[in-house]
């Protein structure tokens, strides 16, 4: 998988950042060939599954790439101009997971560097406990992403709903803890944290927020003839 992810990350690193011209960026992405990752091999693509490229979509999040890279990959594979809402939501979830990883990494590193009261603030239990909560939420977002991507390019409504509901619901807490740990520097225009949390908030709402998808999961659960939550959850894996 590193053979797939490594060159992709290198390419993204060369065209990420706020001063990059969007035309130049898109040209580099297109020339990398990755936009055909999901296209079947018979049609000249790499023939990968959505699960295979989930780490690539997370990488897009980690570099805060706002160009529609994942969407274009899916459109090319399906040969369509617009994607259905369930698939669009799942692609957003994978980006949320990547952004969440990046924001956690920034927060951990800031907490280890920033000295107050004569020691790094990461040594303070109040900060540690908050970052632990953030770590938990990042883990939820990551698993939500894997669950969503496990069903390929034609996910069921219920699977997309579970995935996006949970991922969107992690956003307010992740952003809020990241900013609390960073203090005032985090809310400046100049400091990069805001680029990531801005994108995170946008993707929380894109293609339906946690409330929209909660309604869909709830409807499916209430109308299901499965007696127990365990049975219902097992049925999602098979759908």
């Amino acid at each position: 998988m590193d053979e797939l992810l490594g060159p992709f990350e290198q390419m993204l690193a060369s065209v990420a950042g706020r001063s990059v011209d969007s035309v130049v960026q898109w040209k580099a992405i297109e020339e990398s060939g990755y936009l055909d990752a999901l296209v079947p091999e018979a049609a000249g693509g790499a023939g990968l599954s959505l699960s295979d490229i989930e780490p690539l979509i997370r990488a897009l999040g980690r570099f805060a790439i706002t160009a529609p890279v994942a969407e274009t990959m899916a459109k090319r594979a399906l040969g369509v101009d617009t994607l259905g809402r369930p698939l669009s939501a799942i692609l957003a979830v994978a980006e949320i997971a990547g952004l969440a990883e990046k924001i956690l990494e920034m927060s951990l590193s800031y907490a280890n560097d920033r000295v107050q009261f004569g020691k790094p603030i990461g040594k303070l239990q109040v900060i540690q406990q908050q970052l632990a909560v953030m770590g938990e939420q990042v883990l939820m977002a990551r698993m939500a992403s894997q669950i969503g991507c496990a069903h390929g390019l034609a996910p069921s409504l219920e699977v997309a709903a579970v995935s996006k509901q949970v991922a969107s619901a992690t956003v307010p807490q992740i952003a809020s803890i990241a900013h609390a740990v960073h203090g005032a520097i985090g809310i400046t225009e100049e400091f990069d944290l805001q680029r990531y949390t801005r994108r995170l908030h946008a993707l929380r709402l894109a293609h339906g927020s946690e409330g929209y998808w909660a309604n869909i999961v709830g409807k499916a659960r209430l109308q299901s003839d499965r007696q127990s939550s365990v049975e219902f959850i097992l049925s999602l894996r098979k759908s």
Binding site: W213, K219, F232
Partner: peptide
């Protein structure tokens, strides 16, 4: 499930079920 449909409680059913589904995979 035996009561008249209500969007607020449907959402609550949904958010709890979705969380449990992800926790289960973890």
């Amino acid at each position: 499930a035996r009561q008249p449909q209500c969007e607020a409680r449907q959402r609550l059913v949904g958010s709890l079920t979705a969380q449990l589904a992800v926790l289960r995979e973890l």
